[in-house]
């Protein structure tokens, strides 16, 4: 670090230690200023569930939640995330039990190759945390920044509906007589 003048903040040039909270646990790693948050997660912390597709903010695959908000981790530097509360796809399950959103993607064929899926499920979680009963246009609008090249999105939209219904304790796909089973 170097100081420009006495009354200015130090300027960071070299690697520094970055401390963050990831999936509820404190983690730290080294990063020079130019290290993207996505690369910090993957390379420094070994959290390779965050996928990098386009690396310029178009595809949404690298989406993580920062303080609950869906954010493209390829458009943020790790140094900017100091002190942030980050959720990655590794943090969704509960002791090996899939998160309801993950379960819904499994049940409704919300993925094929799976590359876009971490970003999809995290964006979907952010949507349902914000709006537990989204309409189909709202689902499509919220997910419009996440590109999938396999599914044609039909299964993904169904998955989000399923996850929303599961959150309400009903299954939209099941006949009326079995809706109380869950």
């Amino acid at each position: 670090m170097s100081t420009v003048s006495e009354n200015l903040q130090p300027v960071v040039e070299d690697e520094i230690t970055i401390e963050v909270t990831i999936n509820g646990s404190p983690r730290s790693g080294r990063a020079e200023p130019r290290l993207l948050l996505a690369d910090f997660l993957r390379q420094q912390l070994g959290l390779t569930g965050t996928h990098l597709g386009c690396e310029h903010g178009v595809c949404g695959a690298c989406t993580v939640l920062i303080d609950g908000e869906p954010v493209r981790s390829c458009l943020m530097f790790a140094i900017q995330a100091r002190g942030a509360d980050i959720t990655t796809v590794e943090g969704l399950d509960d002791d090996g039990e899939l998160h309801p959103v993950q379960q819904a993607f499994h049940a409704k064929h919300g993925l094929q190759c799976g590359f876009c899926t971490p970003g999809m499920v995290l964006t979907c979680k952010a949507l349902l945390d914000h709006n537990p009963t989204p309409s189909e246009p709202e689902i499509r609008d919220f997910l419009s920044g996440n590109i999938c090249r396999c599914t044609g999105y039909v299964g993904i939209v169904e998955s989000v509906k399923e996850a929303a219904a599961a959150g309400r304790g009903v299954s939209p796909a099941a006949p009326a007589s079995t809706t109380t089973e869950r």
């Binding site: 200015l8 130090p10 300027v11 960071v12 200023p33 130019r34 993207l36 690369d39």
Partner: peptide
């Protein structure tokens, strides 16, 4: 990947 820079 971005080129190196100083950060304030």
């Amino acid at each position: 990947k971005p080129a190196s820079f100083k950060y304030a």
